[in-house]
Amino acid sequence: MTDIQFLETANGRRIAYVKTDGQGPTILFLSGLKSDMEGTKAVALEAWAKAEGRAFMRFDYSGHGQSSEEFTDGCIGDWHEDTLAVVDQLIDGPVLAVGSSMGGWQSLLLARARPGRLVGLVTIAAAPDFTEDGYWTGFNDDQKAELEREGFLSIPSDYDEDYVITKLLIEDGRDHLVLRSPLPLNMPVRFLQGTEDTAVSTAQALKLLEHVDGNDIRLTLVKGADHRFSDDECLRTIQKMVKVVLARI
């Protein structure tokens, strides 16, 4: 049975996590929006890490999974604080982050906030700045007015129940954008992107690749893969890229 533990953060949130001891650097999985540490990619990568004798960490942001708070009360900055609390209080030594979708944005924020700790990065359908470039830009005038008036807006999702997008999420997202200023990534970095992803486009993946600075950065496009990126072949691809980054650290 999975040994779930809890971290009480300085701002009063209770963060659920599962930690696996092993050889460093610690592989830290960062989940997507409304996903959690029980997702297919997180659990599969943990199983691989255990088989390889590697240190591994997965956790739930506040408002997600088994952590405290409500999803609609949270925002990008809160989940960034949760990530920093996990890295600063639960992980010793260097970190290799693996970020999926919104977790890709979180991994880039981590790289900016803790450049001395992060030594490698793998992202899967990374979605930096999606609150602004995806949601806000995609809203029509009526939706923007409803968001301003009601403080939230419900939009359909292909992967879950309707998403409730709050005014807080949009406004806080603007304080954490990473594609508007230089973003050095002085570490081995591997971006993964499916060509059939309807949530994050290939063009967005190319925009991220072109924006970041570093001398060991690659983007791999997987033809036919969707946003979940979680069939057996995709899971093997994630493991392969983690191995590549580990070998180049």
Rank of each mutant, 00 (worst) to 15 (best):
L108W: 00
R112Y: 13
T123S: 12
L109R: 13
L118M: 11
G134V: 00
F139R: 00
A97Q: 04
T123F: 12
T123C: 12
A97T: 08
H80N: 15
G93H: 11
T83M: 07
V119Q: 06
Q89K: 12
A126Q: 04
T123A: 14
Q106A: 15
P94R: 05
G77H: 01
R112A: 15
L96S: 06
V87S: 13
Y135P: 04
L121D: 11
M102D: 01
P115A: 03
R112S: 12
L118E: 04
L110K: 13
G138P: 11
L108T: 09
V87I: 15
T137I: 05
V119A: 06
N140L: 03
P128F: 11
A97I: 11
D129K: 10
F139L: 06
S100P: 04
V122F: 10
V95Y: 09
D141N: 12
G120R: 01
G116Q: 07
S101D: 01
Q106D: 11
D141W: 07
D88F: 00
E132R: 14
P115S: 07
L108K: 10
A126I: 05
L109P: 04
G99T: 02
G93R: 06
T83C: 06
V87C: 13
R117N: 10
D133E: 03
A85P: 10
G138M: 00
D78F: 15
T123P: 02
R114P: 15
R114W: 10
P94M: 05
M102L: 12
L84I: 05
W136N: 08
D133I: 09
S101R: 05
W105H: 06
D129P: 09
D78A: 15
W79G: 14
M102T: 12
A126Y: 00
R117K: 14
G138D: 05
S100F: 05
